[in-house]
Each structure stands twice: as structure tokens, then as C-alpha cells.
Write a protein that binds this DNA or RNA. Structure first.
Lengths: 346, 346
DNA sequence: CACTTCACGCGAACCGGTTCGATGACCGGC
DNA sequence: GCCGGTCATCGAACCGGTTCGCGTGAAGTG
């Protein structure tokens, strides 16, 4: 059931069948019908490997994301889902590679063995050897996230700095003066994860600007860690009245910790941060937060990649998104109106 | 940078390079070193398409899961993650196909074009044309889930009937008499999703056995639907004191609904069901539930598939799992001790 | 020293497509 | 009636590996 078989049964040559299928050269209506008939009858589909070998394109894109280690977050799920769907819409398949660094076996397989035409990278670090490696190879790729030096590369990212700052301003406007920041796990911060770094940065700067008293924490990606983290926060400074988090997996645990400490959200304590919308709506009270538009980001990444594949010489493009804060129910007035930072900060 | 280039530089023939790499025929230590040296120097990796074409194996497995539609559940995420990792451990890549039925373009691409050596199917329906199709083709595949007639096929599944029944017995033992069942969305039930059907079945039978008064509901896969569903439950029968759910995405909404109705969990109302452990621990109070061992299931599915690929004539195997109920904090005593069903049920 | 044995390496064919140059049939124009 | 030009089709080469059968030189044997 290969192209030769089809050609034989249709009484034509292999090349004619190929042209009939691809339309790259004219084929008479008559023979086209004959060929199509045989194909339908036998349910023939051209072999992907042979085709890829011949024309150098696999019609597959690679999706590179770090190994679960322990957990994936809901946001990662949303990215994966949206990338797969957007790719399918453009007739691309998606090959998954659980690689954190460019020396991973899986990463090498995907690229070195030319299994994919291009790649989408997730969980970008500020200094990311995968990004550098691909750039050096001039291998078509798009990052979901933005490294320290994104110039000249393709990416779609979130303005974590601005987002975290927006959360701070929101809380400061409500009169909160002592605010905690709950980051992703320390190991991620240490290895330079973009969102963890830029988020922390934006938080710190904005807090300084508003003269807030802050403490920052790293927290494991699970409910138990979130609960423990919250206990630590209240232990370190019982006067804390609000927190900003990037860690959606810990959110349930943070809430539980607050409940157990007898703090009512939002009456006694405000919670906000940057998380995927559907997770923000799962908790009670629903989280006032900057909703990560994971679906849009995945789709845009695929679109950029396909554009880059179709136009190898196109200049680099990117999208930097800054979704607004969705007001829900987890933030409320703080102890008092904000004071000029010059007074409060000394 | 192909095998011919390596051969030229090492001063040997292409076949010798191939044998040196595969070890399928002896190569002298001397030439092997020469070849390896050239390969290391050039960073050569054999082209996957060419290799697949020549020996008929892609070293890729397909993971078939239904399109997101609106949402993926956390459980699906866990499956995907564990499958990818288990596959990577066995040096297989994973190709994602968002296909619900065998006529999907993506499904056809994967199989018809021979992009994968075998497939893992998720979200099985009782009558599943994908399963039937693959069985008819004798295409190596493993289902995560069990269709109505699983004899002679390979699968790893959860005993949803027993699990739902266990939840009922747990509640009945606590003295609950009026219990609601919150299923996955109606559309899934209608199209014959295994878990929705078998779960409903197990619930209904066990409830009848224990003489409970029950109502069953379908509920969308999101928090808002969960909240609405709970309101409906209390509206239909305010005396309801417990519920069993298969719908982890709705869980947060169910809890919220209870809170807003002034019912305290577990004092006034008990909640249990079948969900992934990490989600059960996210909500407050933590959910007493049968934890879906998604990680184990994904791993086992890959192991089965690889076994089947390595031994094409091996007899069908399967794993039916029945994880125990993890006692957490969401269930408590009902209105009174259970009465003999003969009395209660009339 | 001639004869087998063996280890090693080579060349050619093959996997199933795509693509290029060539060929032949048919057409209209002069 | 011959010529130039289309149009449809064919054959062969190629993509980059794998694999089979065979040849060759060195080592072992009587």
C-alpha cells in the first residue's frame, strides 16, 4: 500500500500519482479521477517518514517543557492544550519533549535527529541555554517567555514585572502597608526562571515606590507548601494584611492557612497575584488577579512559529502581553489610606 | 552532515558507520574509534526520518486525547505528564493528537501516515470507534480506560463502579441517607464516557443496596457550573446531607455553593468522590476521596505499550486499579445511623 | 606451502516518497 | 505538410539511513 502500488493499479507512473496528490504539476482530469478512485478504494495515505525524508519537512513542531519533577501546574496544562489545538488547526503535529536544558537526551533527539521543523519553548529562564543553543543553530523556534536578552529572537511573553507591580499598586491603593510576596519554589528562582525573577522584581520595585513594608517568600508548588508558607508569613510578621502570589498551585494552601489562622478573606486579609483565570475562579472567595491568558499565548506562539517556518527570512517578532487585573472577591480595604512613602519608609 | 559525510571523513564505507553505530555486526575497535571521533567532532546524529523509513520504526508513540473543547481537567494533565516521562525513560517520543473520534484528521495523520509505532488512548467511551478501529487494524495501542467490551484488548483502567460504590458505602456508614451524585457534563455522559457511566452505575447500585435516597446531576467542568449545580441540589432537596462527585473541575464551585448556603463541611454536609490526589488536597477542607493514581496509570500504559511493541504476539494484558479512599477532612457523621434498607426504602 | 577459516569491511539494493529533465502526442499556424 | 509549442506523463535520481551478500587479507592448520 505505497505510492508504487497506487500507480500500478491506476496504470500510471509513481511521479504522476505524486503530482496528482500535491498538485505541483498539472494532471489531466481523467487520470486524476482514476488515481483518486484507487486511493479511496485502498485508503492510501502517504508515509510521513518517506515524505519528510524527501522534502525535508516533518510537519511537526516540538513543544519543549521541563520535566514534571513533582508536579505540573495548571498553567502548563493550558499552554500545552492550546498549543496542540492551534497546531492541529494548521495541520501540524506536536511532539512533546520534557527537557529543561539543551543537553537533555530528549532535546537532542528532537533537534539533532530532525524530528521537528521548529520548536516552542516553555518555562524560559533568564539565561536559558536552550534559547541560546537554538539561536546559535538558527533553528526556528518561539519561546513562551522572555529571556534576559530577547532581542533578535521570537517570543510571546507576559510582562511579569508590570503585572506584579499592578498587584502591588492595587493593594497599596486599598490601604495595605505590610504585604508578603509568595513566589514559585526557590529552586526555580535560583535557576533563573523568568516569571519568578521578573515578578519578584516588579513587586519589590513597586513596593519600594509605594513605601510598603514587604517580605518575600518562595513556596513549593503544592497546597501543603502554601499552607506552611502562610504560617511562616504570619509568624514573621503578624501585622501582614495582604499577599501577592505567582504560585497558583499553592493558592489553595494559602487560603487554608488563612482560614486556620482565623483571617477572613477579604475582610482581614487580601490576596491577589498572577494566575490562570480558571484557577482564580476555583477558589473561594474568587481571586482578584491578573489572569494569565494561556490559551491566547499558546495560539500566538504557534502562529509565530508557523509564520517563521513559512518565511525563513522574516524579521523576529514577539508579543508582550499585559492582561488587566480582574476584580473578583479576594481583596478589600487595608488598615488605612496610603501615606506618602517618604514618611512610611523611614 | 549525513552518514556519507561521516564515512568519507573516517575513510570507511557508509555501511561500516551504520554497523559501528548499531552494533549489529562486529566492527574492529580501531575503526570504531576513528568513526566515533569523527562523529563527536561533527556532532552528528542520524536523521530520524531516514531511519524510520529504512527500518519501519519511528520510536514515537501517539497520545490521543479529545480536544479541549473548553477545558482540560487536571487529571488529563497528570496523564499527559506521566506518559511523556515514562516514554522518555524508554527512549520514545510522544506525539499528541487531539482526537475524539477515529475520523479526526489528526488521528488519521498519526496512524495512516505511520507517524507513530503505537498509540495510547485517553478518555475512553463505552462504545469507542477509536478503540474498535485500532483493534480492527491490529494497530498496537493501549487504552487508558476500559470500553464496554475490553476482552482481547490492552488497557489500564480504574474500577469506577467500585470506586463510586465505595464512596456511597463510606457515606452510608456515616449515617447519610440523602445523597447527591455530581457527574461530568451531560454531553460526556450522553456520548458514553466510561468514567461517567460506570461511576453513575456504581453509585446508583450501591445507593439502592443501602436504601439511600439519591438524586444524580450532570455538571459542567468548571467552578461556576459546580456552584450552580450545588444550588440546584439544595433546591431540589434541602435535606441532602452529602454528595459524591467525579468532577474535580467543579469541586471548587461545589464548595463555594455550600459555603454560600451556610452549610459547613464536614459538620453539616459531607463531600467525597473520585479525583486526583493533588486536587483533593488543594481544597479546604481537604477532600476525602478515592485518589486517581494518574501517574501510575500513565506509566503502566506506556510499559504495556512498549511490551506490546517489543513482542507483537504477546497476549493482551491489562491493569484494573481500585485505589482506596483516602480519609481526609470533608466527610463526617450524617443525621443518624443507617437503618435496614428494607425500612428506609419504602 | 597450499588450504581452510574467520573477522572485517565494501558495494549495492531497498525503504517510500519528491522532483527534474526528457519524451511523445496533439494542436494550430503558415 | 512541416514546424513550434503545449500539455500530460514517464523514468531516473535523490533524500539518508539499514541490511544483505560477497570479497579480501590475515591468521590458523596439516
Amino acid at each position: 500500500m505505497n505510492i508504487g502500488e497506487i500507480a500500478r493499479r491506476a496504470g500510471v507512473s509513481r511521479s504522476t500519482v505524486s503530482y496528482a496528490l500535491s498538485g505541483k504539476r498539472p494532471v489531466s482530469e481523467d487520470t486524476r479521477r482514476k488515481i483518486q478512485h484507487v486511493i479511496d478504494e485502498l485508503g492510501y495515505r502517504p508515509n510521513a517518514s518517506a515524505r519528510a525524508l524527501a522534502n525535508g519537512r516533518t510537519n511537526t513542531i516540538g513543544l519543549v517543557f521541563p520535566p514534571a519533577g513533582n508536579h505540573y501546574t495548571g498553567m502548563q496544562l493550558d499552554f500545552i492544550g492550546s498549543v496542540v489545538e492551534a497546531a492541529a488547526a494548521q495541520d501540524y503535529d506536536v511532539l512533546l519533549s520534557p527537557s529543561g536544558v539543551d543537553s537533555d537526551r530528549s532535546f537532542q533527539r528532537m533537534l539533532g535527529e530532525r524530528r521537528v521543523d521548529g520548536a516552542i519553548l516553555m518555562e524560559i529562564r533568564l539565561e536559558d541555554d536552550r534559547v541560546d543553543h537554538l539561536a546559535a543553530l538558527d533553528f526556528p523556534s518561539v519561546a513562551i517567555g522572555r529571556s534576559a536578552h530577547p532581542e533578535g529572537t521570537w517570543w510571546v511573553g507576559l510582562d511579569h514585572t508590570a503585572l506584579a507591580a499592578a498587584c502591588v499598586h492595587h493593594l497599596a491603593d486599598l490601604g495595605h502597608r505590610r504585604v508578603a510576596f509568595v513566589n514559585r519554589p526557590e529552586q526555580l528562582l535560583r535557576t533563573g526562571y523568568e516569571s519568578a525573577h521578573r515578578g519578584l522584581d516588579g513587586f519589590t520595585k513597586a513596593a519600594a515606590e509605594r513605601g510598603l513594608t514587604v517580605r518575600t517568600y518562595c513556596c513549593g508548588d503544592d497546597a501543603a507548601s502554601g499552607q506552611a508558607c502562610l504560617e511562616q508569613i504570619l509568624h514573621d510578621d503578624p501585622a501582614t494584611t495582604a499577599l501577592v502570589t505567582l504560585n497558583e498551585a499553592a493558592l489553595g494552601g494559602l487560603y487554608r492557612g488563612l482560614t486556620q489562622a482565623g483571617r477572613h478573606v477579604p475582610r482581614d486579609f487580601s490576596v491577589t497575584g498572577v494566575v490562570a483565570g480558571r484557577w482564580a475562579e476555583t477558589v473561594t472567595p474568587q481571586l482578584t488577579a491578573a489572569d494569565v491568558p494561556a490559551e491566547e499565548m499558546g495560539r500566538r506562539a504557534v502562529d509565530l512559529l508557523v509564520e517563521r517556518l513559512d518565511h525563513p527570512d522574516a524579521p523576529p517578532r514577539h508579543h508582550l502581553l499585559t492582561p488587566p487585573i480582574s476584580l473578583r472577591a479576594s481583596t478589600g480595604p487595608g488598615p488605612g489610606p496610603g501615606l506618602p512613602s517618604s514618611i512610611e519608609s523611614r
